[in-house]
């Protein structure tokens, strides 16, 4: 393994320093997720010039701008659609999509399932903080049952998505979940996701401390991030711990690690082979 020593990873080399401090709230989990992502990129030795980050709208979407790479901040829920075009047109680029729970599961849900189905070589990082933070804290498709948000003033009664199971069922060839608390482990997972030839869907359990945490008295930033620890279960726990649709998602233990992996043909390859065959025939 070409593990580079933790000592030599300098995140500043991958940041647009002039934009810092970044605009996220104190204690926001997205920062940790970004560190893990950039660390993975560094370990894989990906040239920043050939790295494309496509992000959607929301707190997660804004993170892309801070990365010193080719960054594309696109429309609500559409990063996977844009990324599909970009990656097909430019297979030489490493394309990472940063999206959120609302961006990818609500407004962009259709794009997600079809990206999973196509299996184009994109790594999709879904930062799940269970809330629409940017718009002021509305309920999202992953908000835990009974939790308060600005649009569930009496508690949430909608069931949540288990995004990883959704992605797997839709055909994603690599599915994983990890929490921001485990930065090095998350880094390893992202690295595996990028290395995987095909569509990788990675759910990152992140925390919105300022809005969601406060509204639900989930503790301050350190308490919130630490509380992830007691809920994580290794993937070897199998079906025992899988989340039922009609049960609250987050307070239940959630499985982490690589949750699904199946090697199947990468979409871009398929396209190019199809084209080559046609050109030969001409």
């Amino acid at each position: 393994m070409n593990e580079i020593s933790a000592d030599s990873f300098d995140i500043n080399e991958y940041l647009r320093l002039e934009l810092f401090p970044h605009f996220l709230c104190p204690g926001c989990g997205h920062g940790m997720a970004m560190r893990a992502m950039l660390w993975a990129v560094a370990e894989l030795g990906i040239d920043k010039d050939n790295l494309a980050i496509v992000s959607g709208i929301g707190c997660s979407g804004r993170m892309g701008a801070y990365v010193d790479a080719n960054t594309f901040h696109v429309t609500h829920g559409r990063p996977l659609a844009f990324a599909t075009g970009l990656k097909l047109a430019r297979p030489d680029l490493t394309v990472i999509v940063i999206t959120g729970d609302g961006d990818s599961l609500a407004i962009g849900g259709n794009h997600l399932i079809h990206a999973c189905r196509r299996n184009l070589d994109i790594t999709c990082l879904m930062l799940n903080n269970e809330i629409y933070g940017m718009t002021g804290g509305q309920v999202s498709p992953t908000t835990t049952l009974t939790r308060f948000t600005t649009t569930t003033p009496y508690g949430n009664y909608e069931p949540a998505f288990d995004a990883c199971r959704l992605a797997e069922a839709a055909g994603a060839s690599f599915v994983g979940r990890e929490a921001t608390l485990q930065v090095p482990t998350l880094k390893n997972l992202i690295r595996e996701g990028i290395e995987h030839k095909g569509f990788s869907f990675l759910e990152v359990i992140s925390d919105c401390t300022e809005i969601y945490g406060r509204k639900n008295a989930l503790g301050n930033s350190p308490e919130m991030v630490l509380s992830q620890k007691s809920k994580m279960r290794p993937e070897s726990y199998g079906g025992l711990m899988s989340n039922k649709v009609d049960q609250p998602f987050r307070p239940n233990p959630f499985q982490t690690g690589v949750l699904a992996r199946n090697e199947r043909q990468e979409y871009g390859e398929l396209c190019r082979r199809h084209i080559a065959a046609k050109q030969q025939a001409e």
């Binding site: 429309t75 844009f82 599909t84 075009g85 970009l86 430019r90 680029l93 794009h111 050109q279």
Partner: peptide, 24 residues
Amino acid sequence: GGMFVQMEDEIASMGAVIGASMGG
């Protein structure tokens, strides 16, 4: 040698077109 893709919806089609164009 061009790419054709039938996307999941109209919005995605427009997104993918812009994505490809962003790639040059």
